[in-house]
Amino acid sequence: MPAPLGNQFWKVRSSHGPIFATPDVLWEACAEYFEWVDAHPLYEPRAFSYQGEVKVEHIERMRAMTISGLCIFLDIARRTWDNYRERDGFGDITARVDAIIRTQKFEGAAADLLNPSIIARELGLADKSEVTGKDGAALVPILNVTVASA
C-alpha cells in the first residue's frame, strides 16, 4: 500500500529531541511517537458498489511502528538510537521501546491488521525445514541406481 497522497511523515518531529538528557525524556519522546502512530492510521481506498453506484471509501489501516519511523520522529540517526542503547541508564528504555514496537507489529500481523508476510520478515520469523538423513546425518547422493521393471 503506497503512502497516502500528501503524506508528510518526514515533517513530524518529537517536541523533545533530538538530544535526550535523561532516560525519562527519551521515554516521553518515544511515548509521543506511539501516540502519534495510533492517532495517524493509514487509509486504504476501497471501492464499493451498491445498486450500480460505485463509491470509494477510505478505510483506516493500522500503521506499523518501526525503529526507523521512531528515529525520524525523534530527529535522530539510527546510529544515534543504537548509541543510546549503550549509554548508562538508557538501556532499559531502548529495550522497552524495542519490545513495544516488536509486539505491536507481531500482534498487528497476527490479527491480520498488518501484512503477515512483511512483518514476519521484519521480525526475522520464518518457517524453515531442514532435510537430513538418518539420525540427522547429511544426505548422501545415490549414484548408478537401476530400477528393475516388472
Rank of each mutant, 00 (worst) to 15 (best):
1 M>E: 10
2 P>T: 10
2 P>M: 13
2 P>E: 14
3 A>K: 15
3 A>G: 09
4 P>G: 14
4 P>C: 11
6 G>S: 10
7 N>P: 05
8 Q>K: 14
9 F>M: 11
10 W>M: 08
11 K>W: 09
12 V>G: 02
13 R>A: 15
15 S>P: 08
16 H>C: 08
19 I>R: 03
19 I>Q: 05
21 A>N: 12
21 A>W: 02
23 P>A: 09
23 P>F: 07
24 D>P: 01
25 V>M: 11
25 V>D: 06
31 A>I: 03
31 A>D: 12
31 A>C: 09
32 E>M: 03
33 Y>L: 02
33 Y>D: 03
34 F>T: 03
35 E>D: 13
37 V>D: 05
38 D>L: 11
38 D>T: 08
42 L>T: 04
43 Y>I: 06
43 Y>Q: 07
47 A>R: 10
48 F>Q: 12
48 F>W: 11
49 S>K: 08
50 Y>F: 14
51 Q>D: 11
51 Q>H: 07
51 Q>A: 10
55 K>A: 00
57 E>L: 09
57 E>Q: 09
59 I>E: 14
60 E>S: 13
61 R>E: 03
62 M>W: 01
63 R>Q: 11
63 R>F: 01
65 M>Q: 13
66 T>D: 05
69 G>E: 01
70 L>H: 00
70 L>G: 02
71 C>D: 02
73 F>R: 00
73 F>M: 03
73 F>P: 04
75 D>Y: 02
75 D>G: 06
76 I>A: 03
76 I>V: 13
77 A>T: 13
77 A>M: 06
77 A>L: 07
80 T>C: 06
81 W>H: 06
82 D>G: 00
83 N>Q: 10
84 Y>S: 01
84 Y>R: 01
85 R>F: 08
90 F>N: 01
91 G>T: 04
92 D>T: 15
93 I>E: 04
93 I>L: 05
94 T>M: 10
95 A>Q: 10
97 V>S: 02
100 I>S: 00
100 I>A: 10
101 I>D: 02
101 I>F: 03
102 R>C: 09
104 Q>S: 12
105 K>L: 14
111 A>Y: 04
111 A>R: 06
112 D>H: 08
113 L>A: 12
114 L>Y: 02
115 N>W: 08
119 I>M: 05
119 I>C: 03
120 A>W: 03
130 E>K: 10
133 G>H: 03
137 A>H: 14
138 A>D: 15
138 A>Y: 11
139 L>R: 08
139 L>I: 15
139 L>T: 06
140 V>D: 06
141 P>F: 10
141 P>T: 15
143 L>T: 15
143 L>V: 15
144 N>K: 14
144 N>C: 09
144 N>E: 14
144 N>M: 08
145 V>H: 13
145 V>N: 11
146 T>E: 15
146 T>V: 15
147 V>G: 09
148 A>E: 14
150 A>C: 07
